[in-house]
Design a protein around this nucleic acid. Structure first.
Length: 705
DNA sequence: GAGCACTGC
C-alpha cells in the first residue's frame, strides 16, 4: 500500500480538511483516492463522531471498493467497513466507513435531511456529473452551512473541472494528488477523416503490423459500428501475410452484449497474441480492461438528450468533451507507457471540444428530481433558484413543474401536495408512483406494482443477441410463428407486461420458462426484486388496505379497466390523441408533435383498422421518426378532466411567480395545436368531428347511419 | 413496421 501516491499527501490532506469544511480533491486514475481518503480520515479520528460516507455513481464500484478497504483494514466486510446499494445493505451498527451509491445517499437524506450519522461525506467521481451527484452537490452546499461545526465534505473531480467545483463552494481548497498513470503519447489526425470506421481500421492494422505487443482499445459510438468494425477487421487480419505478425483476437464490448460475452475481456490473451477490444464508452469508466497499451479514439459518443418543449428524448451521436478524451487516453497508460491515436485534429480538440461533458441534469426530464427536492421542504421554496453547479434551463424546470402539477404532486401554486410527498417515497418516476397510488384506490394495486416493476427493467428484458445475422433470422421467424407470450389483449404494452409477469409467476418463477420465451433471466429476477421492494414501500405508506399479491388466475375476458384508468391518471402528463383520419397521434400538453405508436407495440387496432382515440405513453423517443414507446389505450371520459386541467395551467404560478411575458410564452407551448378551433373544450369538438367524419364515410359508402 | 450510449433509487 505504501506506494500509493496519495499516502505521501496524508499530512497535507489532514491539515486542509481540518481547516476547511469542504475540499476538492483532484486525483488522477491510480492515485488511490477512492480507497485511501476514507482510511486517512478514519486514522485522523473523524470516525469518532460519526461515519464516513463515500458515494459512487455505480453499484459495482461501491461493492468492490468497500471490499478492498475492508481487506486493507483487516476487518470483516459489513462490520467496520460496509456498503449500501439498492436491495443490499451490508452495514451494521459497527460500521465506520460506508460505500454507497449516490442514489442511496439521496434516499437516506429523504428520511434524515441532515444526514446526521455522517461526520464526513466524500462525493467520489463527481466529474462524471451524474444526475444524482449534481443534486447531492447542491444539497452539500446547504448542509455545510447547517452543520458547519461537525461535517466535512470532500469532492473528487477531474483536473479540468476542479476549479469550477471549488468556485461553487466559495473557493474552497483544491488538493492535487498525482496518479500512477504511465505517460501516454498522444497523436492527433491531421484532418477529420471521411470515414471513422476506415480511419480506425487503418490505424488498428498499422499498430498490429508495426508496434510491439500490447492490446488495442477502440472507442466507437454503438453496437452497429462495433459489429461492422469487428467483421472488417477480421477480414483484413486474415489478408495479412501469414507469419508476418502475431495472432489477433477481436472482441466487441458494449452494454447490450450478454454478460457472459462481456467478461471475455477479462481473460488475458494467449502468448504472442494481440487483442483488439472494440468498445462503447462502457470501457471509459464502467469496465477497466487490463493490458491495453494503445487507444484509438474516434472522438464521438452516443448521448441521450431530453427536449423539455416536446417531452421527447433522442439518442444523438455527439462530440466527446476534453475530460472524456483525457479519460479515454488514460486507458492506454495503466500498465506501461502507451499511445493514444485520436481521429481528430488537435485544433478540433482545442477549439471545438467542450471542457466537460454536458451534465446529465441538463439532458434529462427533471420531474423526479424536482419532486424529490420539493419533498425535502428546503426553506428556499423556489425550486427555480436551487443552487446547482450547472443549472438546468428554466424551460426544463418549468416542464417538470407542469408535469408534476398534471399528476397532482404539486398544487397550482407549486406547493407539494400530500400525494406528492407519498409519491416521493417511491423509487420510481413520478408517473409510475402516481399510478401506484391511484391503483390502490381502484383496487388494482397488485397489477400496477407488476407493471411498474416490469417497466423499471424494460431494457434488460429481452434476451441478448450474439450475432446480428442470427438476430435477423430470429426476427423473421418470430414474424411467422407468433410468440407464446400474451399480447396485452389489445390494450397495449403495459397490459402485455403485466400478463407476461403473471404467466412467469404461475410457473413459480421458472428460469427455463424465461429462456424459452426469450426473456432475460437477470432482467426478470430484477423485476421480481423491484416488485418486492415497491410492495413493501406501498404497504408502509399507503392509506387503507393494500393488496400486493400477484394474481394467479388469468382473467381472459377482462378489460383491465381499473388498471388502465390508474395509468391514465398517472400518465396525465404523457397523453396523446389519435388523428381523425389516420393512426398518427399528436401529443397533448407539450408543444404538439405528430408521433407514431412504436411498431413493436402490442396495441391493437379495431375492426376498421383504427387505433384507440386516446393513449398514454411511457416514453417519447425520436429515432428514425418520433415514436411513443409502451402505450396503453385509455377512455375518452377519463381524458376529459386532464384536458381541462391542461388548459388551466399557469406556469408563472407553478414556479412561484415569474414575469408575465414568460407566462405567455409558456401558455402557447402547452395549448392545443392550431387545428383545434375550440380550445376551451377540445373533447366535445373532437366528438363532433368524429361524428361528421363517420357520416361522410357512410355517405360515400352509400350506407345508412 | 424498427433498432438500442451508460448508470441508478
Amino acid at each position: 500500500m505504501a506506494q500509493l501516491p496519495i499516502l505521501q499527501f496524508e499530512e497535507k490532506i489532514a491539515e486542509t480538511v481540518e481547516k476547511s469544511a469542504v475540499d476538492v480533491v483532484i486525483g488522477e486514475t491510480g492515485s488511490g483516492k477512492s480507497t485511501q481518503l476514507s482510511q486517512i480520515l478514519h486514522r485522523r479520528g473523524y470516525t469518532k463522531s460519526g461515519c464516513i460516507a463515500v458515494t459512487q455513481p455505480r453499484r459495482v464500484a461501491a461493492v468492490s471498493l468497500s471490499r478492498r478497504v475492508a481487506q486493507e483494514l483487516n476487518v470483516k466486510l459489513g462490520e467496520e467497513v460496509g456498503y449500501a446499494i439498492r436491495f443490499e445493505d451490508r452495514t451494521s451498527e459497527k460500521t465506520l466507513i460506508k460505500y454507497l451509491t449516490d442514489g442511496v445517499l439521496l434516499r437516506e437524506s429523504l428520511s434524515n435531511p441532515e444526514l446526521s450519522q455522517y461526520s464526513v461525506i466524500i462525493l467520489d467521481e463527481a466529474h462524471e456529473r451524474s444526475l444524482n451527484t449534481d443534486i447531492l452537490l447542491g444539497l452539500m452546499k446547504r448542509l455545510i452551512k447547517l452543520r458547519a461545526s461537525n461535517l466535512k465534505v470532500l469532492i473528487t473531480s477531474a483536473t479540468l473541472d476542479g476549479e469550477k467545483v471549488s468556485r461553487f463552494f466559495s473557493n474552497c481548497p483544491v488538493l492535487n494528488v498525482p496518479g500512477k498513470l504511465f505517460p501516454v503519447e498522444i497523436q492527433h489526425a491531421s484532418e477529420k477523416p471521411k470515414s471513422y470506421l476506415e480511419a480506425a481500421l487503418k490505424i488498428a492494422i498499422d499498430i498490429h503490423v508495426r508496434e510491439p505487443e500490447g492490446d488495442v482499445l477502440i472507442f466507437m459510438t454503438g453496437q452497429d459500428d462495433i459489429e461492422k468494425f469487428v467483421s472488417k477487421m477480421e477480414e483484413r487480419i486474415q489478408n495479412l501475410e501469414e507469419g508476418s505478425c502475431m495472432d489477433a483476437i477481436i472482441l466487441p464490448l458494449h452494454g447490450s452484449l450478454p454478460p457472459e460475452l462481456q467478461v471475455r475481456v477479462f481473460t488475458p490473451p494467449p502468448p504472442n497474441c494481440r487483442r483488439f477490444i472494440v468498445a462503447t464508452n462502457i470501457a471509459e469508466t464502467s469496465l477497466t480492461v487490463d493490458g491495453v497499451v494503445y487507444v484509438i479514439d474516434t472522438g464521438f459518443v452516443k448521448q441521450r438528450q431530453y427536449n423539455p418543449s416536446t417531452g421527447m428524448y433522442s439518442l444523438d451521436v455527439v462530440q466527446i468533451s476534453k475530460v472524456q478524451a483525457t479519460q479515454r487516453a488514460g486507458r492506454a497508460g495503466r500498465t506501461r507507457p502507451g499511445k493514444c491515436y485520436r481521429l481528430y485534429p488537435s485544433v478540433v480538440y482545442k477549439d471545438d471540444f467542450l471542457d466537460a461533458t454536458v451534465p446529465e441534469i441538463q439532458r434529462s426530464s427533471l420531474a423526479g428530481s424536482v419532486l424529490y427536492l420539493k419533498s425535502l421542504d428546503l426553506p428556499d421554496i423556489d425550486i427555480l433558484r436551487f443552487d446547482f453547479l450547472d443549472a438546468p434551463s428554466s424551460e426544463a424546470l418549468e416542464d417538470a413543474l407542469k408535469q408534476l402539477y398534471l399528476i397532482d404532486a404539486i398544487d397550482e401554486d407549486g406547493t407539494i401536495t400530500s400525494l406528492g410527498r407519498t409519491m416521493a417515497e417511491l423509487p420510481l418516476e413520478p408517473s409510475l408512483s402516481r399510478t401506484l397510488l391511484q391503483a390502490n384506490e381502484h383496487g388494482c394495486l397488485s397489477e400496477a406494482l407488476t407493471v411498474a416493476a416490469m417497466l423499471s427493467a424494460e431494457t434488460t428484458l429481452l434476451l441478448g443477441q450474439s450475432k446480428s445475422n442470427e438476430k435477423k433470422r430470429n426476427e423473421k421467424k418470430r414474424k411467422h410463428t407468433p410468440s407464446n407470450l400474451p399480447d396485452g389483449s389489445g390494450w397495449g404494452d403495459h397490459v402485455q407486461l403485466l400478463q407476461i409477469y403473471e404467466l412467469w409467476h404461475q410457473t413459480d418463477y421458472d428460469i427455463d420458462w424465461c429462456k424459452e420465451n426469450n426473456l432475460q433471466v437477470r432482467g426478470m429476477m430484477f423485476v421480481k426484486d423491484v416488485r418486492k421492494q415497491l410492495s413493501q414501500i406501498m404497504e408502509k405508506i399507503a392509506k387503507g388496505p393494500t393488496d400486493v399479491k400477484t394474481s394467479r388466475k388469468r382473467k381472459e375476458d377482462q378489460d383491465y379497466r381499473a388498471l388502465r384508468r390508474a395509468l391514465c391518471t398517472g400518465y396525465a402528463n404523457q397523453l396523446a390523441e389519435r388523428m381523425i383520419h389516420h393512426n398518427g397521434f399528436r401529443t397533448l400538453g407539450f408543444k404538439s408533435q405528430l408521433v407514431q405508436v412504436h411498431p413493436s407495440s402490442a396495441l391493437k387496432s379495431d375492426e376498421d383498422g383504427m387505433l384507440p382515440n386516446y393513449v398514454v405513453y411511457h416514453e417519447l423517443i425520436a429515432t428514425t421518426r418520433p415514436y411513443m414507446r409502451n402505450v396503453c389505450a385509455v377512455e375518452m371520459q377519463w381524458v376529459r378532466p386532464i384536458l381541462a386541467k391542461l388548459d388551466k395551467i399557469n406556469i408563472a404560478k407553478l414556479s412561484g411567480g415569474i414575469s408575465q411575458s414568460h407566462e405567455k410564452v409558456q401558455k402557447e407551448n402547452i395549448n392545443l395545436p392550431k387545428d383545434d378551433a375550440n380550445v376551451a373544450d377540445p373533447v366535445d369538438d373532437r366528438e363532433s368531428k368524429i361524428l361528421a367524419a363517420r357520416e361522410r364515410f357512410l355517405a360515400r359508402r352509400g350506407g345508412k347511419a
